[in-house]
């Protein structure tokens, strides 16, 4: 599998961190067909886990209708400069990737 980085940006406003995430993933629904008419197998992110300083603060379950190369933004309470935020995903084929940033 090619590398699928999780790109993250974050900023803290009034001790709430707003985190923006871009993931590289085809998000195939399993209903599309290629030029030869063969079904392209489903390949999509099933779970996303967001951690703040090692604590899970939010999890997301996704279906096939999340767009290709998903964009995702969320907010974390009581965050401050220097904190670590991690976002990881796993897909229906068992592939996984994660990203990490230190808040400025």
């Amino acid at each position: 599998m090619e590398s699928r980085p999780v790109k993250m940006r974050g900023k803290v406003v009034d001790s709430v961190a707003e985190i923006k995430v871009l993931m590289k993933h085809p998000m195939e629904t399993g209903t599309r067909r290629d030029d030869a008419g063969a079904v392209i197998p489903a390949e999509f992110i099933e779970q996303v886990t967001c951690e703040h300083n090692g604590n899970v603060v939010l999890t997301a379950d996704w279906g096939t209708s999340v767009s290709k190369n998903p964009y995702f933004a969320f907010k974390v309470k009581s965050a401050k400069s220097g904190d670590t935020v991690k976002v990881g995903w796993t897909d229906n084929l068992g592939n996984a990737s994660k990203g990490e940033i230190v808040l400025k």
Binding site: A60, W62, G63, S65, V66, Y71, A73, V76
Partner: peptide, 20 residues
């Protein structure tokens, strides 16, 4: 069903994403 987000007391109920 497109997506489910499970919040905790440490996350704000405010999310953004893109769907098909």
């Amino acid at each position: 069903l497109s997506a489910s987000f499970k919040l905790t007391e440490f996350s704000v109920a405010d999310i953004s994403m893109r769907v098909k």
